[in-house]
Amino acid sequence: MMQGENNMTLRFDARSVNEGFARVAVAAFIAGLNPTLDEVADVKTAVSEAVTNAIIHGYDDPDEQVELSCMVAGREIFIEVADTGRGIEDVKAAMEPFFTTRPDLERSGMGFAFMEAFMDEVTVESVKGRGTRVRMHKKIGVQEG
């Protein structure tokens, strides 16, 4: 079992093709904790949601950068997805299920709801015009009791 802390940071272009890369990278990074398949799927879904949000809502230009950091400490995973894009005007409203600013893209408005459902804790910091930072936390090994 892993002792202490382990960190990683990735920066990638805000292109939709990188969504798959981001979630697989995090899944590989946390493999040392021996998570269950369900736990890996939970984390992958949450990462995919956060990264997709940064790509779709944060930026217009795919050359902009998304930063994904992941820290493992003991049995806990901390994930941070940050962009320096548009920012969210009203974070509370944005986190309501079915809220979306892009119905034209058939966004379901369930991104934050999914992150909250699959992770233990989700916090969002955002400044309009400056960017958004999503922090997520999950403890591995809780399901088995």
């Binding site: 992958k44 879904t45 995919s48 949601e49 997709t52 893209l105 058939e106 966004r107 379901s108 999914f114």
Partner: peptide, 10 residues
């Protein structure tokens, strides 16, 4: 094997 809320939307 994998689907997120974008899949739900479509």
């Amino acid at each position: 094997e994998f689907m997120d809320s974008s899949g739900i939307g479509v």
